[in-house]
Design a protein around this nucleic acid. Structure first.
Lengths: 200, 200
DNA sequence: GAATATGAGAACTTATTGAGAACTTTATGA
DNA sequence: TCATAAAGTTCTCAATAAGTTCTCATATTC
């Protein structure tokens, strides 16, 4: 995991610039841009550094092509190191199955992410500032958290309980909030929560 | 993940134009419209760009058919659709900055994922079955959740409070569990939690 | 002193871009 | 149906931009 790159100062700087540029613009820099970015004027020198980085295995190049480089990184989500925190137990390796589950969450085309504001679902472990991954669909599921559009205007996260064909009960996961009953015309189920992400 | 498409400037511009046009008019543009849209006069050149995009896997073409192209969907994490659930407010678009934050969580080389068992951190919103993303490091942070190895044997998630140079207090986020004080020799800080994922 | 890291910039090769002609295929309406 | 217009396809020529290779020069390190 920790491989020491043996890069010179400027090579390191070049790598960092390419990394930063790529993240910012979604494409790789030109040699002239690299030169400027690391504080030199010669694109020939920039080219020398890029070739050195290729030799060190830090990136791959496509000769002659404009912006023809690709950073070498870990490409798979969570591939690197996975384990299990037992209640006092040792760390265990996880199965491939679990890894695929995680990847599916982020690549499924019928799902999207929303940022949560408010504490109405806190007892379900969904906190203010969390991201929820929502799978599109209008079908309600018992004991699943749903994304609900009310009056074509307000969006909210709630559990759903069907009362009768004309009314729906929306149940928050927070004792401080009340359950509310709506007529079915006013609410539209956008999807249900299949995953959740939090950043500290 | 950083697998940027290696498109030239004009190819990129062509792609963006097609995307914009498709969204606006609900159909794909003509070659002449593309040419005009990217600021050139030759439909032959526009055709060249469309073919390049097909080769790059960004769209599919139906030969000779008018408006005969279909955009290929993005596979990137969270790229598709992002919004914000306000407390009753409308859905908002999020910034690129937030997208990068999320991507960073899953690609950072100094972090790894662990599966949580047990409820000792439930008041911090970390539940049984969740995944936590851990960034390696031995430095303790106040009010951050840490991965702690005890007696080189047991792993646990806890808050840390330093009592004195010889002792450390480990604080769970669950009133049913007790705080425990260990001598510093017995505990080893493995890292702190920077992210969290849950799958429903 | 030799090896290495660094920088400038000239000279060269290749890729990208643009215009437009000539052609083939598709769409459309009398 | 079928002529015709419209759209897609292929091509050459040319200009420019970007990548590549090179020499020369100056520090710095061991």
């Amino acid at each position: 995991m920790t491989d020491y790159p043996l890069l010179t100062n400027k090579e390191q700087k070049t790598y960092e610039f390419i990394e930063k540029y790529s993240k910012k613009y979604g494409k790789h820099p030109l040699l002239n841009e690299i030169a400027k970015g690391i504080g030199i004027s010669s694109k020939g020198v920039a080219h020398r550094y890029v070739k050195a980085l290729e030799k060190a295995g830090k990136l791959k190049r496509i000769s002659n092509k404009h912006r023809g480089m690709t950073l070498q990184e870990e490409k798979s989500i969570f591939l690197k190191s996975l384990g299990k925190i037992a209640a006092g137990g040792p760390i265990e390796a996880i199965t491939d199955q679990q890894r695929i589950e995680l990847e599916y969450l982020f690549t499924n085309k019928r799902s999207y992410a929303l940022k949560v504001t408010g504490d109405s679902m806190i007892d379900a472990g969904i906190c203010d500032g969390d991201w929820v991954i929502v799978e599109e669909g209008t079908k309600p599921y018992k004991s699943k958290v749903h994304v609900i559009l009310i009056d074509n205007q307000d969006v909210t996260l709630k559990f759903i309980e069907k009362i009768n064909p004309k009314e729906i009960k929306l149940v928050p996961a927070n004792k401080k909030f009340k359950e509310i009953i709506y007529s079915v015309e006013r609410v539209s189920i956008q999807g249900h929560v299949v995953g959740q992400v939090r950043i500290y």
